[in-house]
Design a protein around this nucleic acid. Sequence first.
RNA 1: UCCCCGGUAGCUCAAGCGGCAGAGCGGGUGACUGUUAAUCACCAUGUUGGCGGUUCAAGUCCGCCCCGGGGAGCCA
Length: 453
Amino acid sequence: MDTKMLIKEIIDLDKEKKDVVVQGWVRTRRDSKGFSFIELNDGSCLKNLQVVIDHSIISAAHLKKITTGSSIKVKGDIVESPGKGQKWELMGREVFILGEADPNKYPLQKKRHSDEFLRQIAHLRVRTNKYGAINRIRSTVSYIIHNFLQERDFFYIHTPIITSSDCEGAGDLFQVIKKGEKKDSFFKKDAYLTVSGQLTAEAICLGLGRVYTFGPTFRAEDSNTPRHAAEFWMVEPEMAFFDLNDDMDLAEELIKYVVKTTLKQRAEDIELFSKFLDKGLFSRLEKLINEPFVRIEYTEAINILEKAEKKMGFQFKPKWGEDLQTEHERYLTEKYFNGPVVVYNYPKEIKPFYMRLNDDGKTVAAMDILLPKIGEVVGGSQREERFDVLVKNMERLEMKIQDYEWYLDLRRYGTVKHSGFGLGFDRLIMFLTGVSNIRDVIPFPRTPGTLNF
RNA sequence: UCCCCGGUAGCUCAAGCGGCAGAGCGGGUGACUGUUAAUCACCAUGUUGGCGGUUCAAGUCCGCCCCGGGGAGCCA
């Protein structure tokens, strides 16, 4: 009886194995006199399996159909390869062509393509080394994040994708309406796609203790940058009895754990990026694991930036009370500290209503984690647990308090100190791989003016 | 949304001042070879993003539009 095997399993074999079946997609075929070499990939790992086909087992007409992009099934024996470049190869005994790929039309050639071209054929680009690796890394990182949090007694919770109001005040929302009907015909009120699961996660947190969401979020901003997408994934832990320091500790520990574990579990895939895309990748990742993140107060960050202003000639003057500009973030992470920077205690005026007011009355217990090249990867805060202060905030911002009665209930009844943060999953993948455009770490990216597939 | 750059063969790109549209890769055919992005020879690539204008003549100049990229803004 033949054994169905993944190429990943074959690569790891420690001895030869008879009667094996392998299925996959052909990357290239090289013909010799009497036999052909096929590079076969099944997606299970970066490496291809070299398949040797003796021309006595296949007709010339069939062989011709085994072209780049076609899918085949091969039965045979795994034997040690006499050639250089691979330990094992599959000596074919029977070959079945599962699906042909007309070489005159198949868009992926055995050469490098530009990212822009591959984006147009996102349904096929996963068959390249680079995009196969990205998707494997996404899967592994997801699993690692779940592992990390579950081991620390966090519960994975599910917050709604369709939300009832623009609670978070987070920029532009996508509205949800029933096709062909008025905007409020279904829910009898306005409905939107979520921009964050935070507020509902807080509710579950104040009952379960430690929770997290991990799901898609949506922003309707007309942002055309390599770091923004209209649909992206976030991890949002929310913890009872955590203050801002606990919050920063957890976020830093999580990021370090993810990087360290991914380097171990997806070494081959990460190596591809460090070799061909970003020579400095390994040293940047190693540095992140081994050194504590710099933590500075917003006020200190402004001081540093003001001192650097003359030398750097910033387009925007750093000024207390204003948000940090992209050029400011880059100066801090890429020049001044050359590594991850956590900035905390921001002016209350530039942060949302739910962040906890500090004793100085001017700043809130907020924190952002900035990474070199990527910018903000984490945004979090200690939440305002004091009923009176929270209501005052909402009044200052002229919010409709009646829409948030349920949220205020969380402070009316058994309120406790609690904190949380949101981690941009796709930006984390960018940092891990050195891929510089978010459109290339999301399998089917959604951006303004682009909705394909 | 604003500023800048670009769109020429399937892909990546070239074409001095407006004067016959080209190369490499990929593809096809053949040769050679336990090959490794194989190698060598030959063959075919085309509405120069779209519409309009200037001109004897437009890939090239002008206008509008579409698409892509970079930067900025927006961004829990």
